[in-house]
Design a protein around this nucleic acid. Structure first.
Lengths: 240, 240
DNA sequence: TTCTGCATACTTGTATACAAGTATGATAGT
DNA sequence: ACTATCATACTTGTATACAAGTATGCAGAA
């Protein structure tokens, strides 16, 4: 089952991280994409054999995934929980909650440096689109939102972000990879959405921010559908 | 430094947890209380020797504390970050954020069972006061809020709670232990506050909820002062 | 005195070994 | 046929071993 043969997670994103963290990223992506089916039970020994590492980093990875509610550590093995549609909606609840809070704080601070930074990221996204690089686009997308969140220097909001980021990142990455084939227009739409974000921060106009958040929220339904499609593809692959 | 001789964390709260989790609880409390001073560097080997366990559970504990931003894992040792006054305020920002979200959801569901559960906990708190049991009071206090949060069945809000709970719990525990000596009236005041919470949920009246949250928020300043006092006491102890 | 180079001791990250507990399945008895 | 019991293999949790890298401090030279 699911050897270490080919990795789904971009290796450059976590090249300097420890083996355990890298494994967590890989397993997370495989679980969320459905390559590792929910309900299945992972054993430390088996994973260690599959990935050709010892149990130590495997244990580290499983602890990480358990803290994200992606798996459930039980007496005999780690049960794969995965993400339901409900879960995905709930993640966006949290993101909305955080970003609303952050925006209220942003209204009170100088944002010229932030806007500059976000503009740079937006251009990076543009380049990623030009070269049809879904991974790079996803990376910049996540970075965009993280940059906004970091700007208010709130360690506990950042903590929440750090706890939800991995799943967000996985969802975005998988969604973008699917859309690259089918719906490349979406990339431009998302880019536009980010421009609205920047404008909202620049003008400090709540109305515009609500518009940006609203558009982003609409994208959730799309994400759910993409995930469903990706899992559907896997199922038919298995049946062949 | 800080042997395993006497534990600050109530052993019955985590008796069935693994050694690593127990150590994390203990270290967390020692750091937040100031027994382990911020800025100091913890070495896995030294901690393992102090607590007379191997490095495996120590590593687990350090990972947990690092994920809570209480320590910072560096190349050479874990640097104790601790909590600043700012951090404590920020934790309550998050708690306010969560509880507001939760309350909005609660307005839409049947709360009779929840109110019954909370009433039970409130009576437990009453008993804890009667027997001057600060630890038990703290436990029930945390449980009270967790019960409210769990009632809406939102896995990601619960995830955030789980990530902030340990620090909250530590703060409350330390604060209550100090107040038991000096300001026992505070216990009754907190009890009253929880009654308002129940009433707000029962009546589904936003005004009352705001009142409850507001009172709770005022308590933060008290917590900061208690922590300061507790650390002050430690400093004078060290000087003697 | 000050700077350079190196030996040393300590750090983490990973691999392996051991211990205790649990599900599984086969076997024997009814 | 069916149930109970026991051996076995597999699970996690903890301890230990090994490897690679880094700070420290001392010695020697300029």
């Amino acid at each position: 089952m699911s050897k270490s043969s080919e990795f789904m997670y971009p290796s450059k994103w976590n090249a300097n991280a420890s083996t355990g963290v890298r494994l967590a990223c890989e397993l997370r992506l495989r679980i969320i994409s459905g390559v590792i089916q929910q309900g299945s039970v992972l054993s430390e020994n088996k994973l260690a054999a599959d990935f050709e590492v010892s149990r130590s980093p495997i244990r580290e990875a499983l602890k990480i995934l358990a803290s994200e509610n992606i798996i459930r550590l039980e007496r005999m093995g780690a049960v794969v929980v995965g993400l339901s549609d409900q879960d995905i909606k709930e993640i966006y609840d949290v993101r909305l909650l955080i970003e609303t809070f952050v925006y209220e704080r942003i209204l009170k601070i100088d944002t010229s440096e932030l806007v500059r930074e976000l503009s740079k990221i937006r251009e990076m996204m543009e380049v990623a689109i030009k070269y049809k690089d879904a991974d790079e686009f996803s990376y910049q997308d996540v970075l965009f939102h993280e940059t906004i969140i970091r700007s208010i220097n709130h360690s506990y909001i950042l903590l929440i972000w750090n706890n939800t980021k991995p799943v967000m990142e996985s969802l975005i990455l998988l969604s973008m990879r699917v859309r690259l084939e089918e719906k490349s227009d979406d990339f431009l739409r998302i880019l536009k959405n980010h421009e609205i974000y920047i404008k909202a921060i620049e003008t400090k106009d709540r109305e515009i921010m609500i518009q940006a958040l609203h558009q982003n929220f609409e994208d959730v339904q799309g994400t759910v559908e993409d995930l469903w499609m990706s899992q559907q593809m896997l199922t038919t692959e298995r049946e062949q």
